[in-house]
Simulated assay, not measured.
Amino acid sequence: MNACVQKSVLRQPVAKPLYADPVFDGAADPVVIYHKKEKKWLMFYTNRRATDEKAEGLTWVHGTRIGIAESKDGGATWDYRDTASINYRPDAGYTHWAPEVIEHEGVYHMYLTYVPGTFTDWNHPRHIVHLTSKNLFNWDYQSTLPLVTNKVIDANVYRLPDGTWRLWYNNERDGKSIYYADSKDLYHWQDKGKAVQARGEGPKVFRWKDQYWMIIDAWKGLQVFSSNDLLTWKLQEERLLEEPGKGTDDQAIGGHPDVVVNGDKAYLFYFTHPGRAKANPAPATSVAAKRSVIQLVELEYQNGKLTCDRDKPTYINLKPGKKP
């Protein structure tokens, strides 16, 4: 068998789902980063306690730690690794949600949503805290970001062309709008107010095809915005992952994504609640309705817009490097 034929035979599309958490079956809110020393890709995610059948109210989405999965084959397959060792847990029943992880000058930075307890409802404060690490597994607290309210979630950080940094987040006290803050050094932040006129969470900003993009979870598919300056954002009419797919556990809308731009390709990591498919929803309080899994699709660019086909076979082989 010649090399070209052998390569095509061995190359397989990613599985659906891409990853399911073996502990609580509640993986959500993924972010992917390369571990330089171990030469692996790591996925950090909110580790919801979907299989806790005794959970009262919304306690199953609280009291969570951050799960870590690893990939040795460029993102095609993932195995459970551990939970992140985060030394910020001042409250009993502490909750860690929606990590953002970046690397700068040999230091890893995490911007984490922290909730001070395990609660039955959504009516409690949450903050975004800054942590640092040398190895991606052990994290030291640096500060709580001075953002506009005490009810903020879902940080996303991107380096601006002038070398400074911008953080987008969800301000839950303003109708779950997307706000932003700026920093010169990743440690000191100044809130700048509303970023886009839209309701949504899990903002993800990246550069691809010579422009900037923001994708947010609008709870009815992923809403897409484009920009030339990272300040003025134009809404794309079509949403991504709004219509159900046909693959295993992929019949529900896509939620809270990460995007990895690698070479000329861009990959969208997202999560679904398989039991919340419109065609056949599970009972609201059941484990089937609570469980969530990570899925993957390659982004496409057509006529100035982002698209994706969740039923098209997805191939991935991420190469080491910094995520933009």
Rank of each mutant, 00 (worst) to 15 (best):
K134I: 08
V297K: 01
L230G: 06
V61E: 10
A218W: 00
R310C: 00
T51W: 09
D21K: 02
K16I: 10
D82R: 13
A155D: 04
P90R: 03
S143C: 11
L222W: 00
D191V: 12
D309H: 12
M110C: 11
K37W: 04
L299S: 11
K265T: 09
Y34N: 06
R126T: 13
K134H: 13
L147W: 02
K134D: 14
P22E: 12
V61T: 11
A155T: 08
Y179N: 09
K37G: 09
A84V: 03
Q295A: 02
V260L: 09
G63Q: 06
W189L: 07
E103I: 11
R48E: 13
L268N: 02
K209Y: 09
T120M: 11
A284Y: 10
S226R: 08
D309T: 03
W165A: 04
W78S: 01
L241H: 07
V157N: 03
R126L: 13
V224G: 01
R239F: 05
W78Q: 04
K278C: 02
W168Y: 14
A20K: 14
D25N: 13
A84Q: 02
P17G: 04
K39D: 14
A98W: 00
T132M: 08
L112S: 01
K192V: 01
C308P: 04
M1R: 13
L306D: 00
L235R: 13
S183D: 06
M214Q: 05
R291A: 10
Y179G: 04
L112M: 10
Y45C: 06
E237D: 14
K176F: 10
G193I: 05
V260D: 01
P146R: 11
Y315D: 07
H130D: 07
I66S: 05
Y19K: 02
P161Q: 10
H104L: 12
T272Q: 10
K278V: 05
Q6R: 11
G304P: 07
L112H: 00
T132C: 11
W208G: 01
W78R: 03
Q142L: 12
